[in-house]
């Protein structure tokens, strides 16, 4: 189920607004996300993280570059088998929790019984039974993201993209969601590409942190994280890695003011 993702020479610029030069956002990005691992992309706000994920998801097209899923080149946006969790919660407000989780399966044209069973499984596993009939506006931020995660995972995507999914949550809820995500991942071993500007979050979750430079973005440094999970944020190793990423980011923003 979980697939690997390889990005090669990916560039993207946005066309010039009046009397300005085109904005080069991504410049020749290369990286690899092994199947079943969590890779984080850490970069400052506005450095092109959302753009990158939207291109991988097929919602926008790159200027150059190619993308491989399980070592096979993907061109068309259909059949990519990629899931994405958006920075702003994108649950459909007119659908209940249950109907939101079902939306990807409906579009997959799954048989009705299989669909119902799968949705039930997710509702139980995610502790959403009490909320199945509720609408998104009736849920807390954390619950909404849980529903968004369930909706994305339900059709069984090979690669899951997460665009700062927890950045709008308060500290405590974010902690809960991070360990919830790890629990889900430990069971399913999805391939996750997790984007964040929060260094601690990236170190807590991932097998690798890719630090990207601001505009145009390039992968500046790949930092492997080998600490066993669950990770202790107060440990020496954790803080040394945090220090290292902060230094890289500082160097990058000084080089590119």
């Amino acid at each position: 189920m979980a697939a690997s993702l390889t990005i090669k020479g990916l560039s993207k610029s946005y066309p010039a607004q009046k009397d300005a030069v085109p904005l080069l956002v991504l410049e020749s990005m290369d990286f690899h996300v092994p199947a079943g691992s969590i890779v984080s992309i850490a970069g400052l706000n506005g450095s092109g993280k959302t753009t990158l994920l939207r291109i991988i998801a097929g919602l926008e097209s790159p200027d150059t570059g190619s993308m491989l899923i399980d070592e096979k080149i993907k061109t068309s946006s259909s059949g990519r088998n990629i899931g994405m969790i958006f920075q702003e919660v994108a649950l459909l407000p007119w659908r209940t929790v249950r109907q939101n989780i079902a939306v990807g399966l409906e579009l997959d044209e799954r048989p009705k019984t299989e669909l119902e069973d799968l949705v039930d499984d997710f509702i139980t596993a995610f502790g959403l039974a009490d909320y199945a009939g509720k609408y998104p506006k009736e849920l807390s931020g954390g619950l909404r993201q849980k529903v968004a995660i369930a909706r994305t995972l339900a059709p069984g995507p090979g690669v899951v993209l997460m665009d700062e999914p927890f950045s709008a949550l308060d500290c405590q809820t974010r902690e809960e969601m991070l360990s919830f995500l790890l629990k889900v991942w430990a069971k399913r071993q999805d391939t996750i590409l997790f984007v964040t500007h929060n260094i601690e979050e990236s170190l807590y979750l991932s097998d690798q942190v890719l630090v990207i430079s601001p505009k145009p973005s390039r992968v500046a440094e790949i930092i492997p994280v080998t600490m066993p999970r669950p990770r202790d944020k107060t440990s020496l190793e954790f803080n040394m890695l945090r220090r290292r990423i902060i230094d890289v980011l500082r160097r990058l923003s000084e080089a590119n003011p």
Binding site: R54, A57, G58, L59, S78, G79, R80, I82, G83, M84, F86, E88, A90, L91, L92, W94, R95, V103, G104, E106, L107, D108, P155
Partner: peptide, 23 residues
């Protein structure tokens, strides 16, 4: 964003109308 959130599941224009734009 709602349109994108179903396009990611491979929704075609017809499904976008029925599942997003109409509701």
């Amino acid at each position: 964003l709602f349109v994108d959130s179903v396009r990611i599941f491979g929704a075609k224009q017809g499904a976008i109308w029925l599942k997003v734009l109409l509701p």
